[in-house]
Every structure is written in structure tokens, then in C-alpha cells.
């Protein structure tokens, strides 16, 4: 019980960001194990086909990188992954295995855990070990509460929420890369990956963005919309709008936030020139932060905003955009 196993996640030839979260979290645990029981190491696992470059990258963050190459795992297939990973876990008996709480991990981890009779804590924002006991903190009730749980038994898996750990820094010395023969008998016949499809091709889906910058009637004229659109792109968010803007056909319906439009739950909802009629504000209740820019200090949007700027959008928005770009380029 000294090894922390981390499963690298990759898609379409790219290592996904969650992998770094997992490595950081894994490193913390390995360090703790070392402090508590003198032994602790971090092992990354990469499954797939032609994943040598991933192994190279991973070796900068782990003591060891295990590589299993197999055509059946070229694209993610939870059953193929499950077989390979179960084999490794049975063999190595790690203290805990960390997987991303992503579409990939959600498909893989539960069945893997069940097949190993392991304890599984999903969507963890913290994992801790104390005297050999692993505990995790995970959200409950839609994030309004948190629960801390103890993972029973000695086979443990945790899926980690993305963005819940700081980025790890690369090590001075690289870990070893170990190639392991595939335990798979061949193709998984009952589950076949066919292809990827991009749903946002064509129409934009504003509900998927973490940052939504919405423009309202205060914009006055459709020719002014680019002012707000530029702010949205400076923030890396999408442009949305309130009903009057759609009514005027200045923007397509797909961008409308409101009872009759889209309900959004972004991290940041920036409302520009939106007064905040109840039809509108009830659709942004799920936003983590609401910021409002409006010239009317009595605009109801300020009642739901976490931060507000009272002022003319035509001066505030360009100034804000400029400062954002400056802040971004400064880093």
C-alpha cells in the first residue's frame, strides 16, 4: 500500500487537462503516504494505441508510467479500459486509483469498482489519507452541501472533479516508462465505438459555456452588439441576450436567456444593459456569479447580481474589455 495509481485521460490524440488535476492530487497523496508511512509513489497509467508521447509527458509528473497499448483501446471504450485497468489493479494493489470525474470516468469507474469489489467515491473535490484510511470530500445536493466519506476495504477508487486541484509542476527527473502487455483478448464485441459528433456545429449552445455575456435592450441598436460580443470573446465566453433582443431579431433565439429561452448555469453571467425582468433573472439562478452593468441603479438585475457597475455600457464595456485583454496578456 504505497502506490497511488492515476489514469491518464486522452481524446482525439490529446492528453486532457483532467490528467494534470489527477497527477497533482496523486502527488499530494503520495507525499502524504511517504510522510505517514515512509513509502509512497505515484504511478500514471496510460491506455490506448500509439500513446508514447503521452507517456513521455506523464513521466515528468510521476515516478512511473505504465503503458498498455492495444488497438481496442485506441478510442475510449469503458469495457476495454475496465479489463486492462482491473488487471493492473489486481496485480499492483495500489492504495488508491484516481480517475477523472468526466464523461470518460463516469462510464469507467463504477463498473470497474464493482468488478474489483472496490470502494468508489465519485466527483471528489478532496481526497485525504490518514493512518491508512482514505477519506474523500464530495459535493451533494447540487453542490449546496458536501459530504465526507470513508472508503472502506483495501481496494479504492476515486473520481476527481476537474479543476479541483492546482496544476502540478514537472519534476527534475523523469519517471520510468514501463510497457505492459495488453491483457485484453481482443475487441469488445458488445460495445463498439463508432465516431465522434460535434453537436455545437452550426448552432451555438450557450448553456454549455462557463462564461456567458448577455446583452439586453440597453444596447439600443443591432449595430452596437459587437461592442458586447468583443467583451464576450475577450473573456472567452459566449454572447447571449435577453428577450427583447431576440424579439427584434437582432440575435437568434438560440442565444436567448430566459424562461422561454435557455436556462444557463455558467460560472460567470455578465449582464450588459439588461434590466432584469423576472422572465430573465429566473433563468440565471444557477449562475455562480452574476455581474451586471446597467445605467439604471434601480434596475432589478442589481438585486440578483453579485457585483454591479452602474454606468453607461458604451463607456464601461470597452474599458472593461481593454483591462481584461491587458490582464490576460500580462500573464
Amino acid at each position: 500500500m504505497k502506490e497511488i495509481l492515476v489514469l491518464a485521460e486522452h481524446r482525439k490524440g490529446e492528453l486532457r487537462d483532467i490528467t494534470l488535476d489527477l497527477l497533482a492530487r496523486g502527488q499530494q497523496l503520495a507525499d502524504k503516504l511517504r510522510a505517514q508511512q515512509a513509502e509512497g509513489e505515484l504511478t500514471a497509467v496510460v491506455l490506448g494505441q500509439d500513446v508514447g508521447t503521452f507517456a513521455d509527458t506523464l513521466s515528468s509528473y510521476a515516478d512511473r508510467v505504465l503503458v498498455v497499448e492495444e488497438e481496442a483501446m485506441r478510442a475510449f471504450n469503458s469495457d476495454a479500459y475496465q479489463e486492462a485497468l482491473a488487471h493492473l489493479i489486481k496485480q499492483r494493489r495500489p492504495a488508491i486509483t484516481l480517475i477523472g470525474h468526466t464523461a470518460f470516468g463516469i462510464d469507467l469507474a463504477p463498473a470497474l469498482a464493482t468488478s474489483l469489489d472496490a470502494a468508489l467515491a465519485t466527483d471528489c473535490i478532496e481526497v485525504d489519507v490518514e493512518g491508512g484510511a482514505f477519506t474523500a470530500v464530495r459535493p451533494a445536493y447540487g453542490g449546496k452541501a458536501r459530504m465526507s466519506v470513508l472508503l472502506r476495504g483495501d481496494v479504492r477508487i476515486a473520481t476527481i472533479q476537474s479543476g479541483s486541484a492546482p496544476s502540478p509542476s514537472p519534476r527534475a527527473t523523469r519517471g520510468e516508462i514501463v510497457s505492459i502487455d495488453s491483457p485484453l483478448a481482443g475487441e469488445i464485441a458488445y460495445k463498439k465505438f463508432l465516431e465522434y459528433a460535434d453537436t455545437s456545429a452550426g448552432e451555438i449552445d450557450i448553456t454549455q459555456s462557463d462564461i456567458v455575456v448577455a446583452v439586453g435592450r440597453g444596447i439600443g441598436d443591432p449595430k452596437n452588439i459587437p461592442i458586447v460580443e468583443d467583451l464576450a470573446s475577450a473573456l472567452g465566453g459566449v454572447l447571449a441576450c435577453s428577450r427583447p433582443v431576440v424579439d427584434k431579431k437582432w440575435l437568434p433565439k438560440a442565444r436567448q436567456v430566459g424562461i422561454s429561452g435557455k436556462t444557463v448555469q455558467p460560472k460567470l453571467y455578465l449582464a450588459v444593459g439588461i434590466s432584469g425582468a423576472f422572465q430573465h433573472v429566473s433563468a440565471i439562478k444557477g449562475a455562480n456569479m452574476v455581474v451586471a452593468i446597467n445605467k439604471d441603479p434601480k434596475a432589478p438585475i442589481f438585486r440578483v447580481a453579485d457585483y454591479g457597475i452602474v454606468g453607461d455600457l458604451f463607456t464601461v464595456v470597452p474599458a472593461l474589455r481593454e483591462k481584461i485583454l491587458k490582464a490576460k496578456s500580462g500573464k
Binding site: R243, D247, I259, S260, G261, Q279
Partner: peptide, 10 residues
Amino acid sequence: MWLESTGDER
């Protein structure tokens, strides 16, 4: 109040 107009002018 809960059904948005698809009309030309509200």
C-alpha cells in the same frame, strides 16, 4: 406569459 410569441410584432 409562459409562451413566447413567434409573431411579427408582439
